[in-house]
Design a protein around this nucleic acid. Structure first.
Length: 864
RNA sequence: GCCCGGAUGGCGGAACUGGUAGACGCGCCGGACUCAAAAUCCGGUGGUGGCGACACCGUGUGGGUUCGAUUCCCUCUCCGGGCACCA
């Protein structure tokens, strides 16, 4: 073997072997246990970033580990290729999104391949290819037939200057990103998928999804947001109009504390009240112009205006003033709330602001209620007071009594509502999957017949920021109505890109099938055994995918119901941001690679200067790597300088994969150094000549100790990768083993035999993480088989046995001594040994121990 | 604002089920090798006091439970993710 570790040579060789042996292209083998390992496919933004390296290395370590554990492993890769950045690039550079996207894919594929991932590239898919997106269209038509997809109006951000719809991220402080014009809300017809009808199923299934992180299940449950409560009506009779204002509440027990009702600006009663009331109409207009995002709606100042109208309290019959409130959401419940300021924080704030009465009707432990300031306990459950017939009832009894009385009055009843809204999939954009609909003047919206699928997206258009170019493309627009045959216009809206990513994991099982969306191979590979991706996808992508899979299951297209058995959510990759902000003009960001950070010797202050001009730059803290902040680290340079193994090792060692990872160049050097040390250790060992077989039963104490560490390391690495998914501690354990092997000076043949076993074990343990170097080292150690095909070994239980163990002795919980006892010593003898220890006696002094706690195999605590 | 996480030496992190706080790595300090440098190797490295054995302090803040808390409970602060058209 080579004395020097040369990653470029080693990695080219290993990758050639994997490519030529096709070892990562599995076929269905029903007799074998399958393992479908999937990392979230990337958006082809141009270049890989460290987040990709991290994501795909985690998946690759697991795929390779499971492969060595005998599983039939599938690890595919594809491209989430439709989306907004391609249109932005087109606007900036005049390049068609298709060309930009395909070039990015070609470059990023090369980058990913250089990382040596155990991927079956023969299954690669790109969602912008008609072979893929035709099935989006096909299933959309099935959903239309099933009534799951439907058309209704929805609200969008409208830029009045560019005459175009803006994404939320293109609206900055209420203005269009390019034009600076005040953004308006517009109602337009859109297609929706009825995910809400799956809400109960999606919620209930979470309970059994033990392979998902608890926090993701909690987030999804909260997002779906099941609420049990009362739907109640406030009757009204205005000029020429009477009816019932419907509201939903989870606190029917506070109903006698209602002092006002508030409706959303879009509510029909708001519209009615605004007729002939210019001030109110203006307020409604203002609310409608307000933010569309929930985060902005929730943080904006709570404002309202009285309509001058009154509705009647459903139980007391008293008049209740009706307000319009900007904090009432039309999309939740009925778009109306009953205002109980004494027991709801938002209502309290609103009532204080507009001097509405606050009437406490719940008492908790006799605590004094004051209208001066809100207290958290005002919202707690208690006993009804000032509530007439309900006085003295607790929460549950009051809810039942109020619900019964409301039902008796014919004004409502108990109801369960959901926070989850139906999924609007229409996008007024070019670079997406065309929605297969034809708009006919006679027949309305008509589905494109299956025989005419796919509706092809022309790939040569260049958006200019002023609306969807499809809407100006005569060739695309022109079509005939499938129903009446008259000339018609093709729908120009495309689908949300979450549609593309909601089923790609199914297509990987049968990506070569041109005749069907899915086939029987999907039932072999699915569900995904391990799904890996960023925590930022915890709700939307994962919930949409679960929904889509259920729809396909109900249409009898796939057998599986839940697509991802186990989910692993990785943390983000962060780096420091450096910038200068000139007194006038825009902030300029500098890549950390171009910045020199030194420590000022006088005041120990960190000083950052730009290498190019030596002038100071400011630090903006450590945040997620992004193009816009110019703080990304390109893995390409890293791979070229140190090799893929170093990049992989560092990203796996630097932090547990679930946590955020801060970038540091020094750590990379450390990872590189470790591989070089491993390489040198094997080289030096082999240079001493052939190795004799290990005489397991005839070893001295030192040899047994080293062997114990070898097998302890193997057991720990197996557990850390297989169960805990803490690759950083697995790597640390192998580092410790290598340190121990280095300190062990061989004197005889059995010393060398024990070292040989240790090196073989270290190489095997690291092979999922640094597969190229270990591929070469395995061969060098004399094995004829490839390490990728080697079965994962089991630790030798006998080697792990110990005759004596160390016990920690505490006095009053503080560490005072350590004693060695026989491994099988009973509690009584351990206790006696601890009390006899001189250091312990010193602390006990003359007094006697009040209590002695013995934790077998661990410690003794003497309590004085 | 709401939902979900996180906070441990100079730095990244370890401590898995309530039981030795700081494994492993980086950086730094000292030494070896070298004409020199790089690379490599050896030793040291939480803070304070002490020649030393050792002692005291120490896991974001304040409180609680416990023989014992980085770990469990409550409070607050700061940071990160999501909030439905970024993906």
């Amino acid at each position: 073997m080579q004395e020097r570790y040369e990653p470029a040579v080693v990695e080219a060789e290993a990758q050639a072997y994997w490519r030529d042996s096709r070892c990562f292209s599995p076929s269905e083998a029903p007799a074998r246990e399958k393992y479908y390992c999937l990392s979230m496919f990337p958006y082809p933004s141009g270049r890989c970033h460290m987040g990709h390296v991290r994501n795909y290395t985690i998946g690759d370590v697991l795929a390779r580990f499971m492969r060595m554990n005998g599983k039939n492993v599938l690890q595919p890769m594809g491209w989430d290729a439709f989306g907004l950045p391609a249109e932005n690039a087109a606007i900036a550079n005049g390049v068609p999104p298709a060309k930009w996207t395909y070039e990015n894919i070609a470059y990023m594929r090369k980058q990913l391949q250089s990382l040596g991932l155990a991927i079956d590239w023969s299954r690669e898919i790109a969602t912008c290819r008609p072979e893929y997106y035709r099935w989006n269209q096909w299933l959309f038509l099935r959903m239309l037939e099933a009534g799951i997809a439907y058309r209704k109006t929805g609200v969008v951000n409208w830029d009045p200057v560019d005459q175009t719809v803006l994404a939320n991220e293109q609206v900055i402080d209420g203005r269009g990103w390019r034009t600076g014009a005040l953004v308006e809300k517009r109602e337009i017809p859109m297609y929706y998928l009825g995910i809400t009808r799956y809400a109960p199923a999606l919620l209930d299934a979470l309970e059994g999804m033990r392979g998902w992180p608890e926090r993701v299940r909690t987030m999804q449950a909260n997002w779906i947001g099941r609420s049990e409560g009362l739907n109640l009506g406030f009757p009204y009779a205005f000029d020429g109009m009477s009816g019932v204002l419907r509201a939903f509440t989870t606190r029917p027990d506070t109903i006698m504390g209602v002092t006002f009702c508030a409706v959303a600006a879009e509510h029909p009663l708001a519209t009615y009240a605004a007729r002939g009331n210019a001030a109110l109409a203006a307020f409604i207009e203002e609310c409608k112009r307000g933010p569309a995002m929930e985060s902005e709606l929730a943080t904006q100042e709570k404002r309202g205006m009285p309509t001058g109208l009154h509705v009647r309290h459903p139980l007391s019959g008293e008049p209740v003033p009706l307000w319009i409130g900007n904090y009432v959401l039309m999309s939740y419940g009925e778009g109306a709330v009953m205002g109980v300021p004494a027991h709801d924080e938002r209502d309290f704030e609103f009532a204080k602001k507009y001097a509405l009465p606050i009437e406490p009707v719940i008492e908790i432990d006799g605590k004094p209620f004051s209208t001066d300031a809100w207290q958290a306990w005002y919202a707690e459950h208690g006993r009804c007071v000032n509530s007439g017939p309900y006085d003295g009832l607790d929460y549950e009894a009051a809810v039942d009594a109020v619900a019964a009385d409301i039902a008796k009055a014919g004004l409502g009843g108990k109801q369960t509502i959901w926070r989850l809204r139906d999924w609007g999939i229409s996008r007024q954009r070019y670079w997406g999957c065309p929605i297969p609909i034809i708009q006919c003047a006679q027949c309305g919206s008509v589905p494109v017949p299956d025989s005419q699928l796919p509706v092809l997206l022309p790939e040569d258009l260049v958006p200019d920021g002023s609306g969807n170019p499809l809407a100006k493309h005569a060739e695309f627009l022109a079509c005939r109505c499938p129903r009446c045959g008259a000339a018609a216009r093709r729908e120009t809206d495309t689908m949300d890109t979450f549609v593309d990513s909601s089923w790609y994991f199914l297509r990987f099982a049968c990506s070569d099938n041109p005749g069907a969306m899915v086939d029987e191979r999907v039932d072999y590979w699915l569900p995904v055994d391990q799904y890996i991706g960023g925590i930022e996808h915890a709700i939307l992508h994962l919930l949409y995918s679960r929904f889509w899979t259920r729809v396909m299951h109900d249409l009898q297209l796939v057998r599986c119901v839940e697509p991802f058995s186990n989910l692993f959510t990785q943390g983000m990759v962060l780096n420091e941001v450096f910038f200068r902000k000139p007194p006038s003009g825009r902030v300029e960001y500098f890549n950390p690679a171009d910045v020199e950070v030194t420590l000022d010797p006088r005041d120990r202050r960190r000083v950052a200067t730009l290498r190019a001009d030596g002038i100071e730059v400011q630090s903006g803290g450590i945040v997620t790597m992004s193009k816009s902040k110019n703080n990304g680290v390109d893995p390409q340079a890293l791979v070229e300088e140190f090799g893929a193994d170093t990049a992989r090792l560092f990203t796996m060692f630097a932090a547990p994969p679930e946590q955020t990872l801060e970038w540091s160049d020094e750590g990379v050097q450390g990872a590189y150094r470790f591989i070089k040390r491993l390489w040198k250790a094997v080289y030096d060992h082999l240079a001493d000549g052939p190795v004799e077989p290990l005489e397991r039963l005839d070893l001295d104490e030192a040899q047994r100790a080293l062997r114990r560490q070898t097998h302890h390391t193997l057991a720990k690495v197996t557990d850390d990768i297989g169960r805990r998914r803490t690759f950083n501690t697995a790597i640390a354990a192998v580092m410790e083993l290598l340190n121990a092997l280095g300190k062990f000076a061989p004197r005889g043949p059995q010393d060398r035999a024990v070292i040989h076993e240790g090196l073989n074990t270290a190489v095997l343990c690291l092979s999922p993480i640094i597969p190229h170097a270990t591929h070469a080292l395995w061969r060098a150690l004399g094995h004829t088989s490839a390490i990728v095909d080697e079965p994962w070994p089991a630790a030798d239980a006998e080697a792990l046995e110990q005759t004596t163990i160390e016990i920690v002795v505490q006095v009053n919980g503080k560490l005072r001594s350590r004693i060695r006892v026989a491994a099988n010593a009973d509690g009584q003898s351990v206790r006696e040994a601890a009390l006899a220890d001189p250091n312990v006696r010193k602390f006990i002094g003359d007094g006697a121990a009040r209590k002695v706690i013995v934790v077998p195999g661990k410690l003794v605590n003497v309590v004085l």
